[in-house]
Amino acid sequence: MNTANKSNIEARDLEHALLESIPIPVIAVDKDFNILFINPAGCDWHKKELREVKGKKCYEVLEAKCCSVAKCGIKQAMDSGKKYAGHYEIPCQRETINVEITAMPLKDEEGNIVGGLEYIADITNRVKLENDLRVQTRTILELATPVIKIWDGILLLPLVGAIDTARAQQIIENLLNSIVENEAELAILDLTGVPVVDTAVAMHIIKAVNAAKMLGAKTILTGFSPEVSQTLVTLGIDLSNITTCGSLKAGISKAFGIMGKKVVSCER
């Protein structure tokens, strides 16, 4: 045996050994989707031996929605001649799991596509963690933007910390939902705890005010420090159509006045 042939055999043996040792399912098919090879991890996953599935259609063995002609990862890899990756839900041992499928075309020595190879990684736990993180993030945002009913028809939304686009959206949602639930006629947005009020923050606040107005609720902005007031003037932000007060105390007093009520001292 010459050195070239020996090298080819050793290379094929090495490639086969690597596929056999990979701890995630690996499936190889021909252009007609007939199974040519499944590694031990794939056999364990399907609870079948290679001899039981070899020659069968991969979509008959996998029985997943992603095996439809349009969504099949191997088909897209063979059609494009490039590596393809996608996330899917597939059945596995009487349950549905989330997987990341990576597929690539198999080519002969002339470069012709003769089949496809597919790796399947179970990402169920990762997807669950990501979903849990989204829920936790939303809960944190809701806790960071509480809407307080201080009187019949009057709500208070104290804003604390930086306001980005995601939090601004949460603020608007909480405010609008609370207006509807409480049939509120007036909402106080207190900016005392907002460290920086720039153009972006001002635009978010104006959006919240306009959204509340569409539901028939008036809005009072409170907590403007001299620095914030000067910044807004410098930026050219027009708040002339919005009722503003320097402090929360003044804002609450203003709100009661608008509602036809009066705050009086009860000193003895």
Rank of each mutant, 00 (worst) to 15 (best):
residue 150 I to G: 01
residue 161 G to P: 04
residue 169 Q to W: 00
residue 146 P to H: 14
residue 132 D to Y: 13
residue 172 I to D: 07
residue 135 V to W: 05
residue 148 I to G: 00
residue 129 L to C: 01
residue 133 L to Q: 09
residue 147 V to D: 06
residue 119 Y to T: 08
residue 121 A to T: 12
residue 151 W to T: 15
residue 132 D to I: 09
residue 154 I to A: 06
residue 123 I to M: 01
residue 141 L to C: 10
residue 152 D to Y: 13
residue 128 K to W: 08
residue 123 I to L: 09
residue 155 L to D: 03
residue 174 N to C: 15
residue 159 L to V: 03
residue 141 L to A: 15
residue 150 I to S: 07
residue 120 I to N: 07
residue 137 T to E: 15
residue 165 T to L: 07
residue 143 L to K: 08
residue 120 I to G: 03
residue 163 I to F: 13
residue 160 V to H: 09
residue 137 T to Y: 09
residue 131 N to T: 13
residue 123 I to R: 04
residue 136 Q to T: 12
residue 147 V to H: 02
residue 117 L to E: 09
residue 122 D to I: 05
residue 133 L to D: 00
residue 149 K to M: 04
residue 145 T to F: 13
residue 143 L to S: 03
residue 164 D to F: 00
residue 142 E to T: 05
residue 154 I to H: 01
residue 132 D to T: 03
residue 135 V to I: 15
residue 127 V to M: 08
residue 147 V to G: 13
residue 156 L to F: 11
residue 160 V to I: 15
residue 154 I to E: 03
residue 138 R to E: 15
residue 150 I to T: 10
residue 129 L to T: 01
residue 138 R to Q: 14
residue 142 E to D: 07
residue 118 E to K: 12
residue 171 I to E: 12
residue 119 Y to E: 04
residue 160 V to P: 03
residue 145 T to V: 02
residue 167 R to N: 06
residue 118 E to I: 12
residue 170 Q to R: 11
residue 136 Q to A: 13
residue 135 V to P: 00
residue 117 L to M: 09
residue 137 T to Q: 12
residue 165 T to W: 06
residue 118 E to H: 08
residue 162 A to C: 01
residue 136 Q to F: 00
residue 122 D to V: 05
residue 169 Q to H: 14
residue 163 I to M: 02
residue 143 L to D: 10
residue 122 D to T: 07
residue 170 Q to A: 07
residue 141 L to G: 11
residue 159 L to F: 06
residue 146 P to D: 05
residue 147 V to N: 08
residue 121 A to F: 01
residue 155 L to N: 04
residue 127 V to D: 10
residue 122 D to K: 11
residue 136 Q to M: 10
residue 145 T to K: 12
residue 117 L to V: 15
residue 164 D to V: 05
residue 168 A to K: 06
residue 161 G to K: 07
residue 126 R to I: 14
residue 141 L to M: 13
residue 141 L to Q: 14
residue 129 L to K: 11
residue 157 L to G: 00
residue 168 A to Q: 13
residue 151 W to P: 09
residue 159 L to E: 08
residue 159 L to K: 02
residue 169 Q to G: 15
residue 165 T to I: 07
residue 137 T to P: 06
residue 163 I to S: 04
residue 156 L to T: 02
residue 144 A to T: 06
residue 173 E to T: 13
residue 147 V to K: 03
residue 149 K to T: 11
residue 170 Q to F: 06
residue 161 G to D: 11
residue 135 V to N: 09
residue 135 V to F: 03
residue 162 A to E: 12
residue 143 L to F: 03
residue 125 N to E: 15
residue 169 Q to A: 11
residue 146 P to I: 03
residue 126 R to A: 10
residue 134 R to I: 07
residue 161 G to S: 11
residue 155 L to V: 12
residue 150 I to H: 09
residue 167 R to Y: 10
residue 140 I to P: 03
residue 149 K to I: 01
residue 124 T to R: 03
residue 135 V to R: 05
residue 169 Q to D: 12
residue 124 T to W: 14
residue 143 L to C: 06
residue 131 N to H: 10
residue 118 E to Q: 10
residue 141 L to N: 10
residue 146 P to G: 02
residue 153 G to Y: 02
residue 127 V to I: 14
residue 139 T to V: 07
residue 142 E to C: 05
residue 152 D to P: 12
residue 163 I to V: 14
residue 173 E to I: 04
residue 123 I to A: 09
residue 128 K to D: 15
residue 172 I to W: 01
residue 156 L to V: 01
residue 147 V to F: 08
residue 137 T to W: 13
residue 145 T to H: 13
residue 138 R to Y: 01
residue 119 Y to S: 09
residue 136 Q to W: 00
residue 153 G to C: 03
